[in-house]
Each structure stands twice: as structure tokens, then as C-alpha cells.
């Protein structure tokens, strides 16, 4: 019984990390319709950022995460301007291919700069606490609550501020957004900035729990896509739900299947769901 509660906590932790990445992706892909396949690799760069800020520059964990979020936001905006903005009128396959190019570049660049070895991020919150009889490192709780806080902040930004509302406005009626004077470029850049910052936060939170290496983004991006397809493209609640479902499924699945197959859960889930419902689980529109 305790084992299941343990895995439940793990599932929530994993789900929280997936959630932050999936939220960013659903903003970019579901709302702006830009297939940024390299989003997972932005997460990877974020992980290295936090790693170096902590180890090389000895910064406080939270500072490292905050600064990484800013750095990644800038990188994300640069990517949007250089790669996706010029391709906005081309067929979507071109954007996809360009994203693949960006992904390959980032992974190779990371390998060249930082080597292919797996690195460990120092664990800051390594004290073990006892909740309802389960032993858990503080880090897991930190991850869950930080993710919730970030989700809350994102919600407030998108619903309560006018600037944040422009993202949703643009997705609900693109022409209407232009007509009220919303600048498509601003929205694009802002969306990429926010999404990349979220990815950096996710990477920083996940760092102490998992290893850091150049190809860590590859699997993650596919899982993130699975999540937003499950939850419905462009649906924020869907992304959140999908992320936690996947996190829990993987965690609980690990108790049944051997560890190597854990990653297959996501793909098999996608294959099954799309085979039955080609538009995704909670599809809003048939995109």
C-alpha cells in the first residue's frame, strides 16, 4: 500500500514537471500553431543553465532558476524571430523541419560545449520528510508546490492582465485580435518567452531528481506532444490534466513493467488514443 502512495507522490512530481513543459508547448503549438519541436531542447539548455549557475557560479538554487528562466526566455524569443517568424507563411511541414534543425543544433552544441556525460545537479532540498507515513525528499514537495505556484502565476497572467489576454484572444479569433490592435509579433515573442521560461523552471526543478545530459530533451518533447494531444491542443486545463495523467501512469506503470519500458507508456498511450479518436481526447476544434 505504501508503495502505491510512494509512486503516487512520484507521479505527482513527474506530472508537475511534465505540466510546466506541456503548458509551454500548448501555448506555442496549440495557440500559436507553431510546431516547435525543439522545445524539449530548450528545456535541456535550461537544465544546463541552472546546473552551471549553481555549481560554477555558486548561486542560490532559486536565483539560479530565476536567472535561467530569463535566459531561456531570451533564447526562446531569438528562436522565434530567427527560425519561426520567417516561416510563418510557409507550409507547416517547413516549420516542423526547421524545428528539427534547431533541435539537432542545440543537442550537438550542448555535446560540443559540455560533453555527452551525464551530470548530477546538487540536491538542495535533500532532507527526507514524513508525510502520512511516506518518506519523501523535500525536493519532490518543492517541485509540486513550485509547479502549482507557476501555474497559478500563468493563470493570473493570462486571465487577469490585458497583455496576457492577448494570447488567448489571438487563438480565439486571429483577425479579431488584429482588429483591436493586437500585434501578432508581440504575441508570438511573448508566448515563446513565457513557454521557454516555464521550460527552464521545469528543468531547474527536475534537475536534482534526474540527470542532466544533452539528449534529455528528445524523449521529453515527444511526451509533451502526447500530453497536449491527449488534453486537447491549445487547452490549458487539458495540458495540466494530461501531464498529471501521464506522470501518474508512468509512475504506477513502473511498479508493474520493467523500468526500460516506462517511456513506452507515453507513446503507446498516444497511439491508442489517436487510433480511437483522431482529434485527441478533449479536442476543442478538429485541428
Amino acid at each position: 500500500m505504501e508503495l502505491y502512495f510512494q509512486q503516487l507522490l512520484n507521479g505527482l512530481t513527474l506530472g508537475s514537471i511534465y505540466c510546466l513543459v506541456a503548458l509551454g508547448l500548448t501555448l506555442i503549438y496549440g495557440i500559436m500553431h507553431i510546431p516547435n519541436f525543439a522545445h524539449g531542447h530548450l528545456y535541456m539548455v535550461g537544465a544546463y543553465c541552472v546546473l552551471f549557475l549553481c555549481t560554477l557560479y555558486g548561486l542560490n538554487y532559486w536565483m539560479a532558476i530565476l536567472i535561467s528562466m530569463v535566459i531561456l526566455a531570451v533564447i526562446g524569443i531569438i528562436m522565434e524571430r530567427l527560425v519561426f517568424h520567417p516561416l510563418r507563411d510557409s507550409p507547416p511541414t517547413n516549420s516542423f523541419i526547421a524545428a528539427v534543425g534547431a533541435l539537432l543544433f542545440l543537442e550537438a552544441g550542448a555535446t560540443v560545449l559540455w560533453g555527452a556525460d551525464y551530470r548530477r545537479m546538487p540536491e538542495v532540498f535533500d532532507k527526507v520528510v514524513n508525510i502520512f507515513g511516506i518518506m519523501a525528499t523535500q525536493q519532490r514537495l518543492v517541485v509540486i508546490f513550485s509547479a502549482l505556484a507557476l501555474m497559478g502565476a500563468l493563470y493570473l497572467f493570462m486571465k487577469k492582465t490585458l497583455i496576457g489576454s492577448t494570447i488567448e484572444a489571438m487563438s480565439q479569433d486571429r483577425e479579431g485580435a488584429f482588429l483591436v490592435g493586437i500585434d501578432a509579433n508581440m504575441v508570438s515573442m511573448m508566448t515563446f518567452g513565457v513557454a521557454s521560461a516555464l521550460a527552464a523552471a521545469a528543468a531547474g526543478l527536475a534537475g536534482p531528481l534526474f540527470l542532466v545530459f544533452p539528449s534529455m530533451g528528445g524523449l521529453l518533447i515527444i511526451k509533451a506532444f502526447v500530453i497536449i494531444v491527449l488534453g486537447g491542443m491549445g487547452s490549458i486545463p487539458g495540458a495540466v490534466a494530461g501531464a498529471y495523467i501521464l506522470g501518474l501512469a508512468e509512475s504506477l506503470g513502473a511498479t508493474v513493467f520493467p523500468a526500460e519500458y516506462k517511456d513506452l507508456v507515453a507513446f503507446i498511450l498516444l497511439v491508442i488514443i489517436l487510433s480511437i479518436r483522431p482529434t485527441g481526447l478533449f479536442a476543442k476544434e478538429g485541428r
Binding site: L162, S165, E168, L179, V180, I182
Partner: peptide, 30 residues
Amino acid sequence: VRHGISQCAEGRRLFAQMSVYKNLLLGAYT
């Protein structure tokens, strides 16, 4: 829009899932 020309387009192009208030507020975005 910033130059003072505003259009109510064919088909209205409202933000359907947003409240009336929010739609109006966004009208004053500039």
C-alpha cells in the same frame, strides 16, 4: 488602429469564449 481607424468586421470576429466585458476591454487595447 493606433492611427484612429477601427473596424467592426464582417462576421463580427468576437472572442467568443471571453466575456462581453473582456471583449470590450480588449477593444481598448491600444
